[in-house]
Amino acid sequence: MQKHFTIIATLALLSFSFYSCDNISHKQHYSGQLMSIDSTITGNAVMQDYIKPYQLQLDSQMNRVIGVSSETLIAKKPESPLSNLVADIMQDKTAEYISKNKLESLPLFSLVNTRGLRSDIPKGEVLLRDIYEVMPFENQIVLVKLTGETVLALVDHIVKSKGDGIAGLSFTIEHGEAKNIKLNNKTIDTKAHYYLSTSDYLANGGDNYSMLLNPISRANIELKVREAIVSHIESLSEQNLSIEANNNKRITLLN
């Protein structure tokens, strides 16, 4: 084997020295760019015609005004008006479910992953389409019962994730650690039980919330996160109210 290699190597060396055309550099070239797709390009007509009927069907389903927003609401970490709003809505809808079903009375808080809120709520008229873009996922709201110990593990993970949307819970972050943690304005008792309203995505361990995988109990409140947002905005509209940003601090970064 080694001998065979040597022979080829020798041949190769010979050919290198004999053929002058190998002086052509064996450099190979590349160029790279991101080309803009914008209004300077006229769309392919065949494709536009193909898309049209889908577009019309979608418009008829989605371009319904469901409410008005007093400002543009964006979602960002550690906290933001939009993640606060969605967390508030989930907490409210779950509280309704608890009282309607006469469940045990326990402190309730909520959690939504900020990165799961995929767009903004625009200022002015809000279309059903906008809410589909904010919350495109078919996530269901679930109610899970946790020990205080698990709640603290969850808070640690929120800190590690640089914040997520919460309601009914607040803390400060100092040197990468959660301090002054309050659930419904009270200190958490590691042995006590608490209710969390969240999405089935997070309750199934999504975004590495693995501490939620084995709760004391879990129930589906039979409402999608998106349906909850739409229903909240529609009920504001019925009262001639617009969506207001809620800027009250839940996660405070110190340092």
């Binding site: 190979q28 070239h29 160029s31 991101l34 797709i37």
Partner: peptide, 16 residues
């Protein structure tokens, strides 16, 4: 979001 189309052009010498 499909706002860009990535493009890389490679040139290779035929005898290599």
């Amino acid at each position: 979001g499909g706002v860009k189309l990535g493009r890389i052009d490679l040139t290779m010498h035929a005898h290599k």
